[in-house]
Design a protein around this nucleic acid. Structure first.
Lengths: 334, 334
DNA sequence: TTGAAAGCGCTAACAC
DNA sequence: GTGTTAGCGCTTTCAA
């Protein structure tokens, strides 16, 4: 993949050493610990390296240092903007710290997920796992051997970047109560998902405080079609507002409701979670809870790079706030 | 990142060799070229490896074979579903072939893009580049030294996976003409973008055949805000239909037009490009040209893995068809 | 401040 | 079929 002049073979540290009239050890030092070589020597080495277009071979370096210079991230679905938002932040933070990033997409399949996590763990210095489907045991096992950070999932002694849906939900419930709603539906996502549990529990806790009664429906697939299916159930539920597990699902509900002649928000208020771009672009624009996707990605990388810390330091599981975004799908009930 | 029993150190090929009572060479063979060892021996090795949880060190293997087992992809924006669609397909195809994939996001900055391409080229066996902004010279330079495939961009002697916008445009123009439109606007994306040029030229070629007059407006940033800005110009252009550079931009146009009290499609037909999910979810649902994102990703990996082929074999630059998707933003002019 | 040399874990000749 | 051994390109003792 690299080349030295006409020969076609990439320049190695020996080529640089020869060109600069020094030993390979000196070249290595000039590049990795500049303060260990005389200024003039370093300059000679740097020039030689530049002339030959020398790039240290990362595999060789990794072999000896034990570090790869890579981070990894496993996500369930690259088509979901929520995860690509995290990915974008992760990759930006990684580049900043001179790491490269591997991605793997499990397509929401727990079996594939486990395989990907295991495979990846051995090629990276740290791994970020966003996998609602994977069970605890394999995750804990990998975490014991590798440097791993969980995103939106809590496991004992595993560092994690967490989005605190509870405070967004608190705001959401207050908002609906203030509009005058009393009976709302919650459209559940996958049972196994930590996020779904967190949202459901947050709702259960917040609703009574504001005099709201919650009807839990589902679970439904956390996708557009899931929302379409859920819309049927909503119509039979005698509620004036519907809280969908996420934005994509809410969009499905919106479409189906419209087909049924149910107007949003006049006949039914509707909200989502995530605040994906198109939540602001659909019509009517969606009231939703914004998740700190960017910050979470950045935080995950930070936790990874910070390493385990002192032996007795507590494992870092850090919470990020979420926030209600009021748009046009919520209004007073009729 | 790996571990052997209590010691904490990962098992190496020597540990396996000892455990299986064979030489390291035999272990290596049993794992990489099973047909070179006796069945019984192989089994012993495999058992030992499993017992120790042995995973070959890829850096060491790469050092000697010269191959990394990694592919890379550089995209301008992971927030754009067009690129994550490609990424998703790339990663699926890569895993299939037992490769891992690196991603890098240049944030549409040509300088960053060049740096990423160069850095990545040396850590992978093949690189997929989707970068509208990067100029030809550095790409050709990297292509000369590395195995590189271009996505939606043509450069001499560089393999490429290309989406043939022309046939989607042909259908689009025919559709508009059939509805009775005679004057249409084209909202241009970035001047430097190969895709934009291709779309613009396709339109210039197809329009006369169907009696359409095209007014070219822009360039505008290929984002939502770009569309919002463009909408102003559209209103002054005396056209009955507007063809936006892409879906995201079309969405901006749609929103602004609505604010102005211009109804789509009654007062103005509107189309996009890409057929992103939300093109089907917005209201009214967008008529657009679907790009074969999945197929292109798969093809790019295929081209990479196929390698350069015979010395005199022509470089493969393969075209994929695009297709008009008629939804609700197009109608006869008033 | 520099050089010589010993490996990191693995594969690929080359012998047997 | 299997073992011995020489490196792949680099970092890091240890001496000088």
């Amino acid at each position: 993949m690299r080349q030295r002049g006409i020969t076609g073979a990439p320049a190695t540290i020996r080529d640089v050493a020869r060109q600069a009239q020094v030993s390979v050890a000196t070249v290595s030092r000039a590049l990795s610990s500049p303060n260990l070589v005389r200024e003039e020597t370093r300059e000679r080495v740097l020039n030689a390296a530049a002339e030959l277009g020398y790039q240290p071979n990362r595999a060789a370096r990794g072999l000896i240092t034990g570090r790869t210079g890579n981070l990894g991230i496993v996500v369930p679905d690259l088509d979901n903007p929520f995860f690509t938002g995290v990915l974008k932040a992760v990759q930006a933070a990684a580049v900043q710290a001179d790491y490269s990033v591997f991605v793997a997409d499990s397509d929401e399949d727990p079996v594939v997920e486990e395989k990907l996590v295991r495979t990846m763990a051995q090629q990276v210095d740290g791994l970020i796992v966003c996998s609602p489907g994977l069970s605890d045991a394999p995750l804990l096992e990998v975490a014991a051997k590798s440097s791993l950070v969980l995103l939106n999932r809590v496991l004992p002694d595993v560092p994690a970047a967490l989005m605190n849906a509870a405070n967004g939900i608190e705001q959401l419930v207050a908002h609906l109560a203030e509009l005058g709603h009393e009976r709302v539906a919650f459209l559940s996502g996958p049972d196994t998902s930590w996020s779904n549990t967190q949202r459901r529990n947050g709702l259960r806790a917040a609703a009574p405080k504001h005099g709201l009664t919650v009807t839990e429906l589902g679970p439904y697939p956390p996708r557009y079609e899931g929302g379409v299916a859920a819309a049927e159930d909503v119509l039979g539920a005698e509620v004036t507002a519907t809280i969908a597990y996420n934005d994509v699902m809410a969009l499905g509900v919106l479409a189906r409701l419209r087909e049924e002649g149910v107007r949003v928000p006049e006949d039914m208020s509707l909200t989502g979670f995530d605040d994906l771009v198109f939540a602001g672009l659909c019509d009517p624009a969606m009231t939703t809870v914004a998740m700190p996707v960017r910050e979470a990605g950045r935080l995950a990388v930070e936790l990874l790079l910070a390493g385990p810390g002192e032996d007795d330091a507590p494992v870092r599981q850090e919470w990020l706030d979420t926030k209600l975004v009021v748009r046009a799908t919520t209004a007073p009930p009729r």
